[in-house]
């Protein structure tokens, strides 16, 4: 079967939501069992006592990137049908900075706060509730940010095109960088004083 199997019409769109629940469960399980329900474990990355975020995040990124390219190579996925986030440079950077501050304050990102709610962490629930306020505030003040929201538009641009190399070569460098980071993280973790949490 050529993926994505829903937009290619092999299974009916009614299955879409069932798959959504199943994939969400896999997502939630992976996050929680790796320790992403604990804000103190997540934030450990920034103080060097626990690099679980770096390890899980980049392992997932390289597994998915390499996997997608292999699926595409063997004709199992139509890469042109995948949803590629359009690039809006200014808003991506400014939004990323705001999220970074929120990350350091709250210790969660939206996905991990959901995992925290799933195991009963009240700080996760409060964080998630805060997001509603943030989204509402943005929507209400949209006219102030409208220009920024649409500026720097580059369409669904791929990062390998920025460097002028093939997707495969870029992914190869990505894997090298990730592996280097994993060994670096292990080295730093040995040097840093252990924090109990």
């Amino acid at each position: 079967m050529i993926g994505p199997i829903i937009s290619s019409g092999i299974v009916s769109p009614a299955w879409d939501n069932i798959f959504a629940v199943i994939l969400g469960m896999g997502f939630g399980f992976a996050l929680e069992s790796s320790g992403f329900s604990s804000s103190r474990k997540i934030i450990g990355t920034f103080f060097g006592y626990d690099f679980v975020v770096v390890k899980v995040f980049f392992t997932a990124a390289i597994v998915a990137s390499v996997g997608l390219l292999y699926l595409s190579y063997f004709g199992l996925v139509d890469y042109s049908q995948l949803y590629i986030q359009p690039t809006f440079l200014t808003s991506a950077i400014v939004g990323g900075i705001i999220m970074g501050i929120g990350f350091a304050m709250g210790g969660f990102c939206p996905g991990t706060s959901l995992a925290a709610i799933g195991v009963g962490r009240m700080d996760g629930l409060v964080f998630f509730g805060g997001m509603f306020i943030g989204v509402f505030a943005f929507s209400e003040s949209f006219s102030l940010f409208e220009n920024m929201f649409y500026s720097g538009s580059q369409g669904p641009k791929m990062i390998n095109d920025v460097f002028g190399i093939s997707p495969e070569l870029f992914t190869f460098f990505l894997v090298l960088a990730a592996v280097g980071m994993f060994f670096g993280a292990a080295w730093v973790q040995k040097k840093v004083k252990k924090v109990e949490y």
């Binding site: 501050i101 929120g102 350091a104 304050m105 969660f108 997001m131 943030g134 989204v135 505030a137």
Partner: peptide, 24 residues
């Protein structure tokens, strides 16, 4: 946590996605 959530919520809308949707 609340403050972080508010900022994160705001940032996701500006950047069209969060750590999982946009970044990962």
């Amino acid at each position: 946590a609340l403050g972080g959530g508010v900022l994160f919520g705001f940032g996701t809308q500006l950047a069209r996605g969060c750590t999982s949707g946009a970044a990962l």
